[in-house]
Write a protein that binds this DNA or RNA. Structure first.
Length: 401
RNA sequence: GGGGGAAUACUCAAGCGGUCAACGAGGGCAGACUGUAAAUCUGCUGGCUUAGCCUUCAGAGGUUCGAAUCCUCUUUCCCCCA
């Protein structure tokens, strides 16, 4: 590794229109790899996405639509571009697409040149296949590891790339590639896998109750994206900042030190959230999302709330339960319980809402309200919205039309 | 095929004729504290027009002034014998 420039590749199958932060671990390995002077190669799995990787899947998957794969491929490519340097003459990152060599590959040639070197016995020993022996696996998905193995061989021969990086679920596929290179070329190649990141509470990293945290702002709003990083526990933040930031070792140690001295400032989380949100969404959007967080979680923010634009308001609250009601209701005062249970189904029962109100859990426009509160049109933000909160983090929006 | 046991709220799990909307634990939600943490403490956790009322303890009937509790049948599950 320390001698000269090496190449390493990571493969991404365009099975979704966006990457999520769980995909980022191998990307960051490549980033660090490049920062050490080596050359990263990003393999887009235009061909492999058409096959379907059985790794980690307990059942056969439906084939993806070919047009969809193309669309996905382009948007994932765009997302990846922000993580690496493509301009360097010396070790600039490079994209390849395995469709380029697979679509001209003749099946007969493939069987003679590639298939002959890997035994079915060997292929069957992989977890991805073994786990499917009971439930069944199609020949198509079974072949996947051979195609990925061939990718590795192809890049070894054409790009002098002897290292493949991936998530730990890719171990089997990668070692098949190493095996193939050894058989065909009598040369050594290397696998580097990163464990699936888990949080200290044992749950999967990069998931919220609503699902994956996506890089695509249409799937996960920048505000939520920022919030995800801000809410990482201290313990996890230490791990994450090493992994996901490109800060120097000294820098990280000094942030950690300040964090320990003044833990309530949450230096680690803030720094991490800033790095990630800026890199994925850009600085401008980061600042807007940050402003939103301050408004929603800061103190004395009722006035501030009134100042944010409708556009930002909608961005911060993208994805929160929202109900639309008629303006006619505001001809007179509205009973709070009537509004939140009957006019809108925001709460499942009046009893529940009553309990919440009695325990001081409900806020309207950032101010606690009681069971006697009546709503008037003066409570409307931008003459259009009512912002309710259940506790600290759970929002409900009522929009007037 | 014969015999025995079980089915209770989101989950586990008490209850064995009235004091049961049903102990307790976990989970969940909220409050206090705090850092939009963790830990801790507190409250809530069937519905309603809430000193009360209504609907719930696998399902359907029955006994009784009164049933989650007793009886009958049905369904499902577990165990033992063949």
């Amino acid at each position: 590794m320390s001698s000269g420039i090496n190449s390493a590749y990571v493969g991404f199958d365009p099975t979704a229109s966006s990457l999520h932060i769980g995909n980022l671990a191998p990307v960051m390995l490549l980033t660090h790899f490049q920062n050490c002077g080596h050359k990263p190669i990003l393999l887009l799995g235009g061909a492999t996405a058409m096959i379907g990787d059985p790794s980690g899947k307990s059942t056969e998957r439906k084939l993806l639509d070919i047009d969809e794969i193309q669309t996905n491929l382009l948007s994932i490519k765009k997302q990846l571009e922000t993580f690496l340097d493509f301009d360097s003459k010396v070790n600039g990152a490079e994209f390849v697409n395995n469709l380029d060599w697979m679509q001209t590959m003749n099946f007969n040639v493939f069987l003679r040149e590639i298939g002959k070197h890997i035994t079915v016995n060997y292929m069957l020993s992989k977890d991805s296949v073994k786990n499917r022996m009971e439930t069944g696996i199609s020949f198509t998905e079974f072949s996947y590891q051979l195609i990925q193995a061939y990718d590795f061989l192809h890049l070894y021969k054409n790009k002098n790339c002897a290292i493949q990086i991936g998530g730990s679920d890719q171990w089997g596929n990668i070692t098949s590639g190493i095996e193939l290179i050894r058989k065909k070329e009598s040369m050594e190649s290397f696998a580097l896998t990163c464990p699936l990141l888990t949080k200290s509470d044992g749950s999967k990293f990069g998931k919220t109750e609503e699902g994956n945290v996506w890089l695509d702002p249409d799937k996960t709003s920048p505000y939520k994206f920022l919030q995800y990083w801000l809410n990482i526990s201290d313990e996890d933040a230490k791990k994450c900042i090493r992994f996901f930031s490109v800060l120097s070792k000294e820098n990280i140690l000094s942030i950690e030190k300040s964090h320990e001295e003044t833990p309530h400032l949450r230096m680690l989380q803030n720094e991490l959230a800033k790095e990630m949100t800026c890199r994925v969404h850009g600085k401008k959007i980061y600042l807007r999302a940050l402003e939103g967080s301050k408004i929603l979680f800061g103190k004395n923010t009722k006035e501030k709330l009134a100042t944010i634009s409708e556009k930002d308001f909608l961005m911060f609250f993208e994805g929160v339960p929202s109900y639309t009601i008629s303006r006619n209701y505001f001809n007179k005062e509205i009973d709070i319980i009537h509004l939140l249970t009957e006019i809108t189904p925001a709460f499942e029962s009046k009893g529940e809402l009553r309990r919440m109100l009695q325990s001081n859990a409900i806020s309207l426009n950032k101010e606690k309200i009681s069971i006697e509160t009546n709503i008037t049109k003066n409570d409307l933000i931008s003459e259009k919205y009512l912002l309710f909160q259940k506790g600290k983090k759970s929002y409900i929006i009522i929009q007037v039309e």
